[in-house]
Design a binder for these strands. Structure first.
Lengths: 347, 347
DNA sequence: TATTTTCTGAGGTACGTGCCTCAAATAGTT
DNA sequence: AACTATTTGAGGCACGTACCTCAGAAAATA
């Protein structure tokens, strides 16, 4: 049997009350006594039973995810991962909820944050585009005692706000190296497409991508980013023109996680299977395109990891602990047709 | 507040005892009463407090990993992940240990398994090369009531033995596609090196690799596997001869996780940076070689996931639950220089 | 209706820890 | 030595669930 506080008390020659005072760093214990208990802990290999402790304390953590309303398949996947996490963390005294707010109205987001306080929630994970109002509201929220993490999309916040998500510059660099190697020393141009270049993530990915191409693949040159703004007809026109003007486009890099519009425009102009195409995120659409050979690689981040990591970081902050950086680093995954796994494709 | 069994009893109009009988599937409850309770669970959103349940039951799980003594860096990483898991799972009433046994003596492994029983351990995760004795001993152990998972290396066991590890055929196929794309349509030969081809994993990887090369990259042809048997001089001689005979070797695929001997032999014969080199597992050695550009890609599986997954599967089996297949599938990771992350390189 | 069988309720103890109170013992000070 | 301040012990209740017993109610059978 694993030793309990009772065993510890006996081993240290003190009472349960004193053991409790030492374990929970309560005042009123002589230094020598503390040392005696600490020694006994080592000696008998005592480890606190965390679930019993949580049970006794009946402490509850309430966390909320704040997500944009409008979104692509990736966002929907995040939502369903949050639902899963809600169930999984319920057993650990942790309530997880989420709320969706119009993302193109920073004012509304800031207003919601301003209404929140420690009485509503213990921590909040925010996924929102960059905006000064949001940044300010976030800081005030933090000062009111609510823990905050920036989720997936970075706000370039101060050091007190944790970030959970991938390093987008590295993600772009990963795409860059793959593109370079896939194009195998040939000379050519690379078409880069995004929904918008107003998003920080897309800009960072583009920078990482260009960095690698410039440094290691001088025979490839990336064209200026095409912005779709979700408009299929316009995108098709622009992309069509580019393919008419440049006959040496050997690769396409889609920066944003919504790839449908971009891919359809490219497919209308050329044969996707003859072109190296790299995109982001494991969406059902992208998985299908990988299987069919129209996509060559996908750079992804694990949505379940993102959600769980955000929750763990918030809980660590609530407990006054430092999150374990190495555990919370989100990996940049590379997917090709062969390593998709059996997993049912999640919407 | 979250509803408790007491609330549930009230909502269902029954007593605590009946709620308990329903929740734990004990006999002696009328069907209609069971349905009433189930309905009430839905209605008030009751979720059992697992830690309280475990506390009350004071159930403990004892699991053991059985690993080979001789091993490479990958094995050492596994061991340190087991140590980590031991600490993490201690809070969940789960004791995790490991034992190392000479892997080239199936007899010894079988003997150890024969001595084990339900009084020693609740479950065991076995990583051992294929052998009839081991397979038989495993089955007898299972029949004695000890749960068993095949860990990392498959034993081609019956359906009652779970397997935790990657699909090595798919891992080889992943390497195959990458190699094909990295070689970019050029004609050439691929050198394949393993420590031994007597291990099932290596054979499966090779099959997957060949499958993709044959199907999608007919201009590439893979040479017969070179076996190093851990002998640097011999390997260098064989590899040197191959490079002298064939001047169109454009890629090298190292099947086994110990890559040092193979890479040194190739480096002595040609410039690694001009050759596409793919290997397996995230070892410190391989990470360094990725950084230096001598390795082009690494196919990896996450050792921490492997360990935790094995423990979760064992626990599910002990509880008579079915493991969640999608959660326990180990992903085939692709690593290149850009997505290695900040993580300190683990030995 | 009488008898047996099957269900159900009431109540208890236990798990390991947190957190409280009150009295007693000890240490430190004058 | 007498006093105060500090430290310690003993004990109890609580958290939410498991698991046990026993009595009594309801249903099924004779």
């Amino acid at each position: 049997m694993r030793p309990t506080t009772k065993d510890l008390a006996k081993a240290a020659g003190v009472s349960l009350a004193t053991v409790d005072r030492v374990l929970n760093r309560r005042p009123g214990v002589r230094k020598e006594t503390v040392e005696a208990v600490t020694a006994a802990i080592e000696e008998i290999g005592f480890e606190r039973n965390i679930s019993a402790a949580n049970l006794a304390r009946s402490r509850r953590y309430r966390f909320e995810f704040l997500l944009p309303t409008a979104g692509d398949q990736f966002l929907e996947t995040l939502v369903s991962r949050i639902e899963e996490a809600r169930a999984a963390f319920a057993a650990e005294h942790t309530e997880v909820g989420f709320r969706r707010i119009l993302s193109d109205d920073p004012h509304q987001i800031a207003a919601h944050l301003a209404r929140l306080g420690p009485e509503d929630t213990d921590g909040i994970a925010i996924m929102a585009p960059e905006a000064p109002q949001v940044r300010d509201a976030t800081h005030r929220l933090f000062e009111r005692g609510v823990k905050v993490v920036q989720f997936v999309a970075g706000q370039l916040g101060g050091p007190e706000v944790d970030f959970v998500g991938v390093d987008n510059n590295a993600a772009g660099a990963t795409a860059g190296r793959l593109m370079g190697k896939f194009c195998g020393g040939r000379t050519g141009r690379i078409l880069v497409i995004a929904d918008t270049m107003n998003a920080r993530d897309n800009v960072e990915r583009r920078q990482g991508f260009d960095r690698i191409l410039t440094a290691d693949f001088p025979d490839l040159s990336a064209l200026p980013s095409v912005e779709t703004h979700g408009d299929p007809a316009r995108t098709r026109r622009i992309v069509g023109n580019l393919f008419e003007n440049f006959h040496d486009i050997s690769g396409v890099y889609v920066l944003s996680s919504e790839t449908r519009v971009a891919l359809e425009a490219v497919a209308a102009a050329t044969d996707l299977r003859q072109t190296q195409v790299i995109a982001h995120e494991r969406t059902a659409f992208n998985v299908n395109k990988l299987r069919s050979g129209e996509l060559d690689a996908v750079i992804a981040q694990n949505p379940g990891h993102l959600v769980r990591s955000a929750i763990r970081v918030l809980r660590a902050r609530c407990d006054g602990r430092e999150p374990i950086a190495s555990q919370e680093e989100i990996r940049i995954e590379i997917l090709i047709r062969e390593n998709l796994g059996q997993a049912a494709d999640r919407t």
